[in-house]
Design a protein around this nucleic acid. Structure first.
Length: 219
DNA sequence: CGCTTTTGACCCGCGC
DNA sequence: GCGCGGGTCAAAAGCG
């Protein structure tokens, strides 16, 4: 099956249940991108399931035993039992008690032509930070005031040579405490952070899973 | 000096 | 055809 080709729109609500002892101000937004990698896998299951034609699906992820935080994926009838594994986590970083919604979209509605393989992932996060550090290096290439939103939209391109992934970042017009981040495409390289931890495995607590953040596409 | 950010201009698809 | 609006370009400025 072709990966990253989402025929329908899925809305997934992810809820973190962080270990209270790890809930600290050292929280990094990086964690949410790690969840995104996980969601890419989950979305495959959604597609492969006959019932995935629904406009919305709900997925609940519970972070239970971080020292860790080897998260368990549960609740979603499609994902359950599929052996989906959590992605790599950062040492000393605990997820905030937060939730985010992730919407997988096909290219429908885009003005510019894109290939069918392009995946667009958008999620809304409650954060005071204007730009979330997701482990990748981005270069800003545009800023635009868009209609129906007093907050400007910022455009970023992945700085890695040969990687054409883009992202848009804007504050929610209805609630400016939320940041809407939209990713277009899939990185064709590792996150610099993942490489870093791969090179220093002694920093990764037992039980953590190192997983590449990109997937090869087969047709 | 090289990389990033800023920002106005330009491009392009879409609706009327 | 034209105007609107979102997305991109690229030169200049900023920064480490």
């Amino acid at each position: 099956m072709e990966r990253h080709q989402y025929k329908s729109s899925h809305l997934l609500a992810i809820n973190f249940s962080p270990n209270p002892s790890l809930h600290s101000t050292t929280t990094r937004m990086d964690d949410e991108m790690k969840w995104l990698s996980l969601l890419e896998d989950v979305s495959d299951y959604l597609l492969s399931d006959p019932g995935s034609s629904e406009e919305e699906s709900t997925l609940s992820i519970t972070c239970t035993n971080h020292v860790g935080c080897a998260s368990t994926l549960s609740s979603h009838p499609i994902a359950k039992g599929k052996g989906v594994q959590p992605d790599v986590r950062y040492p000393n970083s605990a997820p905030t008690s937060t939730s985010m919604k992730v919407k997988f979209k096909s290219g429908v509605g885009k003005k510019r032509k894109t290939t069918d393989d392009v995946v667009r992932v958008a999620f809304k996060t409650q954060t005071e930070k204007d730009v979330m550090d997701d482990g990748f290096k981005w270069r800003k290439y545009g800023k635009k005031q868009v209609k129906n939103n007093p907050n400007p939209r910022n455009y970023y391109r992945c700085s890695s040579v040969g990687c054409s992934v883009k992202k848009r970042v804007e504050r929610d017009s209805e609630d400016s405490s939320y940041v809407i981040t939209t990713y277009d495409g899939v990185h064709n390289h590792e996150s610099p952070c993942v490489i870093y931890y791969n090179e220093t495995p002694f920093m990764v607590p037992n039980g953590w899973t190192l997983q590449a953040s990109h997937h090869s596409s087969t047709s």
